[in-house]
Design a protein around this nucleic acid. Structure first.
Length: 729
RNA sequence: GCCCCGGUAGCUCAGUGGAUAGAGCAGCGGCCUUCUAAGCCGUUGGUCGGAGGUUCGAGUCCUCUCCGGGGCGCCA
């Protein structure tokens, strides 16, 4: 908020320089408001003079030969501004600015009237309309074949906070969970069979005959305790009758059960979704089949028995295109032999127009390939197996098509994925690009050229040699310039509309040693167990609900402390420590302390300073002797507190821009620290000095509002009081 | 082989292309008759893995390189 104020002051100062003819009217960059080296250097700084000196000099203006001269000119104009208390030029050309106490007071006043929610959403409506977007954020999205793990916990914490931040910044956010429940998938089949197996066992134990005695536990099946629980639940629901139903039935029932379990865990973790989207529903409705057809029509998918692979060199540069024969036995890797030539599969056949000869509509013929190499993927991907089963990626095409075609029609898709999905990014972009081409989304761009381009099946020679503007590998892959450009354009479009955020691995450390997420006995470390364990340690005697809440607070904060795209160690011992070393409590304690102080102040009859009595009146009326007038100069710790507390809207914007939500955790710690410093140096409740008391009460309220707002964004609760337990030793 | 992430104080990590690189913990020394000591103050501690480059200026950007973690399926 104060940054915006200073930005305005800077702009008007520059306008005055322009008006005075000392600056060209344009051609120089917008000034940037930045932090100072430290409190001694003022509240904010700008490096504008250093950045702008070149363009100003180039503009033919001879007056400023170096950054310092330019900085001096800017400083002189700034000094004339009501909102500015002092200006210094320092170092190579920094302009350090200190705002008037009145300016600060006006910020406090505004923030005070907004409250926590208002500060959190301060940017809403202020973000230029052109930058406000409708954003669909998909996160967590695991198979319904087990509980949410502590690994997914990071994605849950990150995704939900990212949504909060984007919304607070002024975007319209849709939270989405994609249920990976495709019954074709290996995982779900294995899970269903595992449950079925245990159900049979339990039926027998309960005295029923085994209706399927020959059924064996599937290889690589699921062995965790929860699998038996699911089986028991299903059996119990129907008194053993269901065991006669077979594995397919158990997939269905177990799936619903697990989704409920997941919902419950996520709920306890403070995560909710607007949409739970079922992958299977896409198959059932036939959308997948339709999408695939359209891909084939556009020539980005086909059944030719060849797989294209790109050999990549440093920097992802394509060094070579390899066409792998998939027809017969695939063996072709003789060590010393020259690189496989384009062989009988003529280059250029990937583009549209030649898909009518093969590919009967019946299943179980040839593998259907998505030619994802056209869009930068390093190898083609299978859409449909030779036995007719569709792959995961096939439903992904339909899923993204659906996301783009809904009534609410998101401008931007954000997909949050775990570290194991890193290799999936290229594929996803290929999927989206293929969809955009297939849907004719490129009609205005290069799409027209592509659809008219001539099939090039006959002359691979001319394709390789004759295509102007194409590198060798491009000639092999695309055949024509038009087709290449269409594919490129589709890919570029995809980059603009789909942002994939990968979060990195978490290592859980217990007693300094890694705690595995999957245990040897087949059990997994569930998020809900993590939350419960921490809660029990941190709030020993409390009721379960309170423990879960405390555990959630700690777990979320820990997950969010580090940048999502960085591996980090989750120190369970530290998380479970109810002490000053635990940053969560440091922050929450600051909030509780503020609440206590405010209560004490109000008890003593103080109310936050009313607008009339703030120093703003006395100082802003005249800019002469701005800091020496009636108003007492603010204590450095007061000033620091106000600056920090009012900076939340700025932090929110930054986070919304680069999705680096961890900064908010850092901000929360910093704000807490700033308050503790303030508390230590500045007494709030003081009967002998009611004016100061009122003013400081106002700062407390703003600090409280900002702290609440950040914690709210992080999904961490802000307790009004924290009572110390008896010392444990 | 290619891709992603990391390498900053003894440890865990911050760090918008800017000024003398910062916190917490650990170590040492202080502060509760006063609004919550889960707090605060002081102090010790650095070839930002290495080498080049870009520029007025690099922990930050580019290239190369060393070390560590992860990923590269007709799994999802």
């Amino acid at each position: 908020m104060l940054r915006a104020l200073l930005a305005a002051a800077l702009r008007s100062a520059l306008d005055r320089l322009v008006a005075a003819g000392r600056l060209p009217a344009s051609g120089w960059p917008e000034p940037e408001v930045m932090d100072t080296k430290g409190p001694a250097h003022g509240d904010f700084a700008t490096n504008w003079a250093m950045v702008a000196v070149k363009s100003v000099a180039a503009g033919g203006e001879g007056a400023f030969r170096n950054p310092r001269e330019l900085a001096e000119a800017l400083a002189a104009e700034l000094r004339a501004d009501d909102r500015v208390a002092s200006v210094e030029v320092a170092g190579p050309g920094f302009v350090n600015v200190r705002l008037t106490d009145g300016a600060l007071a006006s910020g406090v006043e505004e923030a005070g009237s907004l409250g926590a929610e208002g500060i959190r959403d301060w940017n809403r409506g202020r973000l230029p309309e052109s930058e406000q977007r409708r954003i669909n954020v998909e996160f967590v999205s695991v198979n319904p074949n087990g509980p949410i793990t502590i690994g997914s916990g990071r994605g849950a914490a990150y995704g939900s906070t990212l949504c909060n931040v984007l919304a607070a910044a002024g975007h319209e956010v849709h939270r989405e969970y994609y249920i990976n429940d495709g019954v074709n998938s290996e995982q779900m089949r294995l899970f269903g069979e595992s449950v079925y197996y245990y159900a049979l066992q339990q039926a027998v134990q309960a005295g029923f005959d085994n209706p399927d005695p020959g059924f064996r536990f599937p290889e690589g099946g699921y062995k965790g305790d929860y699998v038996q629980e699911v089986a028991a639940w299903i059996v119990e629901c129907s008194a053993g009758q269901d065991a006669t139903e077979g594995p397919e039935y158990f997939v269905e029932r177990a799936k619903d059960f697990m989704i409920d379990i997941q919902k419950e865990a996520l709920d306890a973790f403070g995560v909710s979704f607007d949409t739970w989207f079922s992958e299977e529903s896409l198959h059932v409705s036939g959308v997948v089949a339709r999408c695939i057809e359209s891909l084939e029509e556009k020539g980005v998918a086909d059944r030719r028995p060849v797989r294209t692979k790109l050999k990549l060199g440093k920097g992802g540069k394509v060094e070579e295109v390899v066409f792998e024969d998939q027809a017969g036995a695939v063996e072709e890797d003789e060590p010393g032999s020259p690189p496989p030539t384009p062989s009988s599969f003529s280059p250029g056949t990937n583009h549209p127009g030649n898909n009518e000869e093969g590919a009967p509509e019946t299943q179980s013929t040839q593998t259907l390939w998505l030619r994802s190499t056209l869009f930068g993927d390093d190898m083609d991907r299978v859409l449909q197996r030779a036995d007719g089963r569709l792959t995961y990626i096939a439903s992904d095409v339909a899923y993204h098509a659906d996301k783009f075609n809904r009534p609410e029609n998101a401008d931007l898709l954000i997909t949050v994925l775990g570290p194991d999905h890193h290799g999936y990014i290229e594929r996803l972009h290929a999927v989206v690009a293929a969809h955009l081409i297939a849907e004719g989304g490129l009609r205005k761009a290069e799409g027209a050229g592509a659809s008219e381009s001539e099939p090039n099946t006959t002359s691979q020679q001319s394709a390789i040699q004759g295509a102007p503007g194409l590198a060798d590998w491009e000639a092999q892959l695309y055949g024509t310039l038009e087709w290449r450009d269409a594919c490129r354009a589709a890919r570029a479009l995809s980059e603009g509309r789909l942002k994939v955020q990968i979060f990195q691995l978490v290592r859980f450390l217990k007693d300094g040693k890694p705690a595995p997420m999957r245990k040897r006995d087949g059990n997994i470390y569930a998020l809900i167990d993590l939350v419960r364990e921490i809660g029990q340690k941190v709030k020993p005697g409390a009721p379960e609900e309170e423990q879960l809440k405390a555990g959630k607070d700690v777990a979320r904060f820990f997950y969010l402390m580090r940048h999502h795209d960085t591996t980090f160690d989750f120190d369970l011992d530290l998380a479970e420590r109810q002490s000053d070393e635990n940053p969560v409590f440091y922050v929450q304690y600051a909030h509780a302390r503020i609440c206590s102080v405010i209560a004490k102040a109000e008890e003593a009859g103080f109310t936050a300073a009313a607008p009339q009595s703030t120093p703003s009146e006395s100082t802003s009326t005249s800019h002469l002797g701005k800091n020496e007038g009636v108003a007492p100069e603010l204590h450095p710790k007061e000033r620091a507190l106000v600056l920090k507390a009012l900076d939340l809207p700025y932090e929110v914007l930054r986070c919304a821009e680069d999705y680096g939500v961890n900064r908010l955790a850092t901000y929360a710690i910093e704000l807490a620290r700033t308050y503790h410093h303030f508390y230590d140096a500045c007494r709030v409740v003081d009967q002998a000095d009611p004016e100061t008391s009122r003013r400081r009460l106002g700062y407390c309220k703003v600090a409280q509002a900002s702290l609440r707002a950040v914690l709210d964004l992080l999904g961490v609760s802000a307790p009004d009081r924290m009572d110390r337990e008896a010392p444990t030793g």
